[in-house]
Structure formats: structure tokens, C-alpha cells
Design a protein around this nucleic acid. Structure first.
Lengths: 341, 341
DNA sequence: TGGTGTCGCGCAAACGTTTGTGTAACCTCG
DNA sequence: CGAGGTTACACAAACGTTTGCGCGACACCA
């Protein structure tokens, strides 16, 4: 029962407590414990640090924030963490933040404009050091305007917005890769589950795809490009609609894997098999894609790295370093959902 | 350009600012803005509240926490948010917390004892109002001991620990349901991807399953019950090992859906089809389960509700109300991965 | 040796809030 | 009408930290 943990009984271990025991002023302790130490001799600094470690001192974040007006927290806004892609990106963000001594505070916005506005205000009230926006909107995003106006450091991730710092995959290229693959397999009548119109991911993947098909001499009729929610149900609905078209598409590109699985569900309801009857291509390469009964052809994107790099850029920006947006390179992984078995 | 948002230029709107404009003392403003208002006349309270609203006042959480020693944040510890089940539970937790005016602060622990210990200390340093533990361990969990010893309000979710407040599904029953289903289909030689030995979820689902089979007169040989990680890769590995047994099991129960999909991947590598060649049962009913090329038979568990109820219990406990652990009722959903097509 | 510079540390104020205590003014009632 | 009680507010301290300022002590150099 020896206390490896500071015992709960004694008075809280604050700067003052350490100062008392060390026989110095509290301000000296504060300086000794601050990495950019100045105005304190190496000897006493060492002594104080040892004492602090021994007592298990932990800086009170509330007091620090109150005094400095800044906290060591980054706010993260995402549509929803149940989307594997965002959850994985968040892990990357958090890991990178931790490496630099920061924490992250994440909030789901469900892509609801009012809610994200509200959540942002909460984050700002907590004096976050910066904001990671995972739910940027193409339809006149007011959040980025607020951030820019108030001069809050921020970075976009996953979704792009011209004129704003971001880390994404090269979605135009990703879309082209999907198209290229299906063209090579001889598909000329294809459909797209295009995602939400306010998300650059869906829009650009679709654009890249459609352009490549147009270049190949097979422009897609508008009704073969359907907006869709990003979840399984959304993909299912879009897939069902696409399969009812005449002529029926021989291949379907869904702008994310979860929706692609929904499309596969719709195929089943039509008595069709993915790969052999209708080719299906997804996007992101989430882990389940490879292990499904019919493995999913998909465009692999480095989600964890995307998160890490976004956080890296944000921290660089915070330190006044010059930063530039990044587009990570995706690549296609062909599996049975297009190759057949 | 009229400011719907408090313009950034002016001095920050604090209690003092409101007090000055209202011609009262700051303490009066504080009391007027506190729900359990006392010692302030209804008239001035109303006047102050109107003024606060007009100025867009937001209470500074750092100052409040510093003064009161408590924040309006609940800490949430989960193994990883990329696990859909935990992400969904978290959404339930957060939604319920928001309804009561609280925020949540979530941290991934990757089931690493050292890391979760570290994360917990960070949360406690932030003076969280309570802790939700989503990664309780059966192998002598030191975190719950710390929480109990320091008298921090907490609740377990997803995983159980006898003697500690928790909200889970009835995993013993869930395991039985899976067994019952496979027995009815005539499977007598079955395998289990049992999950991590330190997680009550996997252990109890396995126990329920194994017991039912023993009762039916088909006790499982130990080598047919394999520990496994909870992710797709873990399920894949366990599945591959089970399929190499002689005699080969005609059905496999995986204690969560993600692992079940991994098992399906292993089946494919063996040239086997789920449902027709080997039956597969998962657990949780994550959304993709229903839409896979061969839809997955699984035990549905109410993840969102689990989160909501856990948070509800924690808040009740905080308010000194008597609370009891809950086990939510799961039910089996039969699909093609056991019924064939 | 005296003037100048640097170093190490103490002092005190401030961040915005909550809350116990003090104190006028008012109401009530015998 | 005066004693006792209540109401409505002001006052001030405190939470733990950071940081500009001041002041001795010491070193250095001419």
C-alpha cells in the first residue's frame, strides 16, 4: 500500500507547496518548471524539478488557461466519429498532438450547420490553441470565416476549401484512378454514388471520375450521378436507384467504402452479385473492405497520416512557420468486387 | 456585415463588464446568472440576464473550474474510437451529457495499461466531474481502484466488473442466443473467436455460448475457443487457425462483428463461403453487417442507448441518487451468413 | 576601484469566477 | 412605533498560475 500515487489526503500539490518546501518564491518554481527556462539558476532549477517530480506535481490547466488566455487543447470538429475514416483521422490528429504536449477535444457535428456553430463557440470559450475542421462545407462555410476573422489558427482535414490550409487526399486523382480501373475492365455504362454535395471529398472524387470517363468518350448522363449520404444506408439507397436505371450500369463507383457496402446491399436485393454481375469500387480502404465475402476494390487513402500531417501543419502555423496545404497521394487496390472471382 | 456574433474588437464580455453596464456588483451578476438563483430580486435578475444575452456572455470555464475545483466535463476512456461499437456508445454518452449541460472529453487508451493510467491522470487534473470507463479490465484493473479510492464518480460501459456500476448488454445471454441459433441449425462442431481475455464482453459472450453447447451435450474442446483481437485482422487470424483444426468446425462465433468479418476473410482464403460452407455469427449488429455480400447473422446490441444510459447513471450518481447497474437485452438477427442463400 | 552589465530571485498584480459575510433598507406584527 | 426578521445587494477573498518589474549580489573591464 505504499503510495506510488500521490495520496489523496494531503493538501493539493501546487506551485506554492513546492515553493514552501524548496524555500523559494512561487514565481521561481513556475520559471523552473517552464521549459523555456530563464531567470533561474541551473542548480535551483534542477532542485525544484526533482522536488516537483517527487511530489507528483501536475500543473493546473484551469489556472494556466485563466492566466494565459490559452489552453494546451486543440479543438477538433468532425461530422461523426462513427465514420471510420474520421475516427482514424482523429487518431492521427491526437497522436501528433500528444507528441507535442497537446490534448485534443473532439466534437461531433453531424454536418449540421447550427450544431457545428454551437460546438465551435464552446471550443473557443475553452480558449483552444487551435481548431481542426473535419467537416468543412462547400456551400459558404461560415465557420472558416469566423476562424479567419478572429485570427484563430486552424486547419482543414479530409475536406478541402480553396484558400484555406488543409490536408486531404488528392481526391480528383482518386476519382480518376477509379475511372481508369473500370475503363480498363471495359465498363462503359457506369453510375456514381456521389456523396453529399457540400463535401469536397465526394464532389472532387466524383469530378475526377466523371472527367476521366468524358475524356474516354463515355460522358456520364446526369441521372447516373446520384448524391448520397456517406453511411451504409445512404449508399444502399443510391445503389437501389442506380440499379433501376435503364440501361442498368455495369459498374458503380461509391465515393466512400461505407456507402459502397450499402451499394452491395442494394445489389443483393436485386439478386445481383458484386464483381460478377456489377462491379463496385469504393474509396478509403477501411479494414473491413479486404475481408468481406467479396473483397472490395477501393482507392486507398492514408487516413492516419492525414491526421498526423494536419496536426503538424497546425502546430507549425501556431509557431509562425510558413505552411502549405497538402494533398496526399491515393492509390487503387483491385479486388474481387471488380475483378470477379 | 451586422454582427450576429459579438465583434472581436471590444473588450471581452465578462461578469465585470455586465456588472458595470448594469450598475451592480459582479457578485450580483454571478448570482443572477446561476440557475439556482438566490439573493437577487427577480427584477434585476431578469434585467441582468437580458443584458448578458444581448452582449453574448459566455461563462469562462477555466475561471469557473479554478474557483470551484470542478469542471462541467466528463472524461471518457475508450480502447479506440475506430471500433464502431465504442464510437457509437460514445455518441450516446455525449448526447446524454449535452442534454444535461455537460461536455465530454474522450481519450483513446488502446487497452494499454500504462497509457490509460496516464490519460486518467490528465483527466483528473482537468477536474472532470466524473469518468466513464469503456475499457475496464478483468485482470486486476487498477484504474477503478484509483477512482474508488479517490471517490471520483464513475461508471463502466460496454465492459463489466463485478462490484462496479456499469451499463452493458447481457453478454452471457447474447452468447447463449448465438449458440441456440447454431444448435437449431444442426451445428455440433463449432469454433469461437473469443476476444481478449481481459475484456468482459468477449469472456462472457464466450461463456454463455460455451455453456449452452455443453448443456446441449456438445462441450467445446478447448482448442476450439481461441482468444483474438477485436479488430478485423484479429478475427482473420483466429478464423484461419480455427479452420485448420481437424475436424474443421462447421460454424464459427466471433464475439464482435468486426472480428466476424475477419473470420469471413479467412474463410475466403480457404476457398469457403460463409453461410453455405461455414456458418458465421457476429455480435453487435454494426450497420455494415446487413449490407455485406453475404449479410451477417449477429446479436444486436443497443450501443447508442448503452451510452445514454451509462451517462444517465453517472449523472444520477453525481446527484447522490441511488443507482444500479444495468444489463441491456440483446437479440439475435438471423441472416445469410448462417442461413445460406 | 568605480561604473556598467548580468544574473538570480522575490514581489505583486492579474486572469474571471464563486461564495461567505456584512449591511443597509424594507416588511411584519404585537 | 420599535423589535426582529427578511430581502437585496455590495465587499472581498480565494482558486493556481504567469510575468513584468525591481533589487540586491556578483562579475567584468578599464
Amino acid at each position: 500500500m505504499t503510495s506510488d500515487v500521490p495520496s489523496p489526503r494531503d493538501e493539493p500539490v501546487t506551485l506554492a507547496a513546492i515553493a514552501a518546501r524548496a524555500g523559494v518564491h512561487v514565481s521561481t518554481v513556475s520559471r523552473a518548471l517552464t521549459p523555456g527556462a530563464n531567470g533561474v539558476s541551473p542548480a535551483t532549477a534542477q532542485r525544484i524539478r526533482a522536488l516537483a517530480a517527487e511530489l507528483g506535481y501536475q500543473r493546473d490547466p484551469a489556472a494556466t488557461t485563466l492566466r494565459t488566455g490559452r489552453s494546451s487543447i486543440f479543438g477538433v470538429l468532425v461530422p461523426r466519429l462513427t465514420d471510420f475514416v474520421l475516427a482514424r483521422i482523429y487518431e492521427g490528429l491526437d497522436a501528433a498532438a500528444a507528441r507535442h504536449g497537446y490534448n485534443t477535444f473532439v466534437a461531433n457535428t453531424t454536418d449540421d450547420p447550427a450544431l457545428r456553430r454551437e460546438r465551435l463557440e464552446e471550443l473557443l470559450a475553452r480558449r483552444v490553441a487551435g481548431i481542426v475542421l473535419g467537416d468543412a462545407r462547400l456551400d459558404g462555410d461560415d465557420l472558416v470565416k469566423i476562424l479567419a476573422r478572429r485570427n484563430i489558427p486552424y486547419v482543414l482535414v479530409s475536406r478541402r476549401l480553396t484558400g484555406h490550409l488543409s490536408v486531404t487526399t488528392d481526391d480528383l486523382l482518386g476519382g480518376r484512378l477509379a475511372a481508369e480501373h473500370l475503363l480498363q475492365l471495359g465498363h462503359h455504362c457506369v453510375g456514381v454514388a456521389a456523396g453529399e454535395p457540400y463535401a469536397s471529398t465526394g464532389v472532387e472524387r466524383t469530378t475526377g471520375f466523371v472527367r476521366r470517363y468524358a475524356e474516354a468518350g463515355f460522358p456520364l448522363p446526369p441521372e447516373y450521378v446520384l448524391p448520397s449520404r456517406f453511411d451504409t444506408a445512404g449508399g444502399h439507397a443510391a445503389g437501389a436507384a442506380l440499379l433501376d436505371l435503364d440501361p442498368r450500369p455495369t459498374a458503380i463507383f461509391a465515393v466512400n467504402d461505407t456507402a459502397a457496402i450499402g451499394v452491395i446491399g442494394a445489389l443483393r436485393e436485386h439478386g445481383l452479385r458484386p464483381g460478377s454481375d456489377v462491379a463496385v469500387v469504393g474509396y478509403n480502404d477501411i479494414p473491413v473492405a479486404a475481408d468481406m465475402p467479396v473483397p472490395l476494390t477501393t482507392v486507398h487513402s492514408p487516413m492516419f497520416e492525414m491526421g498526423q500531417q494536419a496536426m503538424g501543419l497546425l502546430i507549425d502555423r501556431l509557431h509562425g512557420r510558413r505552411v502549405r496545404s497538402k494533398r496526399l497521394r491515393p492509390h487503387l487496390i483491385a479486388r474481387d468486387s471488380t475483378l470477379g472471382d
